[in-house]
């Protein structure tokens, strides 16, 4: 083949044109007709402003917005559909999960949790490697929070309604004083759970595990000594619980377990059931009971059949 300049230049341009036709224009014909999915809605101006901040600060490099079919492990309840993205300009699918996927992040946490987390992510998540975003200022953080709370669109809206409803209820309980607050919190746990003691004995190994989990997940809000004065405390309302007020007020291993597992929607207390296995939740509950409440029901009756590994 005689490779004249014309053959090289015109030839490669013609190939490129053909390829653009087949892998860009033909799919465009198909994908530009996508209809909105069942969760789709347009973004409010505040959310759009938050999205601009998300883009400007390169959040897309660490957070995907794309739940894959293989993401069962992340606990995602919904696989992404083309109709979710029809107004995303540009689309922010992302290519790395240095941090979690955010496509369904709206309503997972209340706004005050996000404020504390954006001021410094270590305030609520001690092991996080996300940058601090206090430099965005109050308005910037507010807009960014509005955007994150919109992720998941109409499904996120439903979760936000729930957050706001329980925010009112939990604030009301907190403002009625420690006695009433603790009673309210306990009453929100189903009766069966309230009556279950921690089924495992207190052991040095169990407390060591509980200590590690507490440091990795709890310390930012509840503080190193469990008095609710962690670094996130100034930003959170109702504030993180001071564990010492639980003593002699009907606390049980089951209540602690249930609250750690499911979180307390409306407050900054997240659920940990996707992050911690059952044993770890019992262990961190017992750590809190032993060290901060100074009252544990571990291994008390009724405890059912003894665990095989008990010493």
């Amino acid at each position: 083949m005689n490779m004249t300049p014309r053959a090289v230049v015109i030839g490669s341009l013609m190939i490129l044109a053909a390829v653009v036709f087949s892998v860009v224009i033909m799919p465009y014909v198909n994908t530009s007709k996508t209809v909105p999915s069942e969760i789709f809605r347009s973004r409010a101006p505040e959310e759009a402003a938050g999205r601009a901040i998300y883009i400007a600060n390169g959040c897309v490099y660490c957070h995907t917005q794309s739940i894959r079919t293989i993401d069962w492990g992340l606990g995602a309840e919904r696989i992404a559909q083309a109709g979710d993205y029809i107004q995303d300009h540009p689309i922010l699918l992302g290519s790395q999960r240095t941090g979690p996927d955010l496509s369904q992040a709206g309503g997972e946490h209340p706004n005050d949790w996000h404020t504390a987390h954006f001021i410094n992510p270590r305030f609520t998540r001690p092991l996080s490697i996300m940058p601090a975003f206090a430099f965005l200022g109050e308005q910037g953080i507010e807009n960014l929070t509005a955007y994150v709370q919109s992720l998941g669109l109409m499904q996120a809206d439903k979760r936000m309604v729930r957050q706001n409803y329980w925010k009112t209820a939990s604030t009301d309980a907190y403002e009625r004083g420690p006695e009433a607050n603790v009673q309210w919190l306990h009453n929100m746990v189903p009766k069966g759970w309230r009556e279950v003691p921690n089924p495992y004995p207190t052991t040095a190994a169990g407390l060591a595990r509980g200590h590690k989990i507490y440091q990795d997940s709890c310390l930012g809000c509840h503080g190193p000594v469990g008095d609710g004065m962690g670094p996130a405390q100034p930003y959170i309302y109702p504030p993180p619980l001071n564990f010492t007020i639980l003593k002699d007020r009907g606390i049980s291993g089951g209540i602690l377990y249930y609250q750690i597992m499911n979180g307390i929607t409306g407050t900054a207390m997240p659920y940990f059931k996707r992050e911690l296995e059952s044993e770890k939740i019992w262990d961190v509950g017992n750590y809190v009971a032993v060290y901060f409440i100074n009252q544990t029901d571990a291994n008390a009756e009724p405890k059912g059949i003894d665990a095989a590994y008990e010493p």
Binding site: V23, V24, T31, S32, T34, H89, P90, I91, L93
Partner: peptide
């Protein structure tokens, strides 16, 4: 203004 398309076509063009 944006240098982008909208939705899934934007992802296809971007990775092309």
């Amino acid at each position: 203004d944006t240098g982008a398309l909208t939705g899934i076509p934007d992802a296809i063009l971007l990775w092309f």
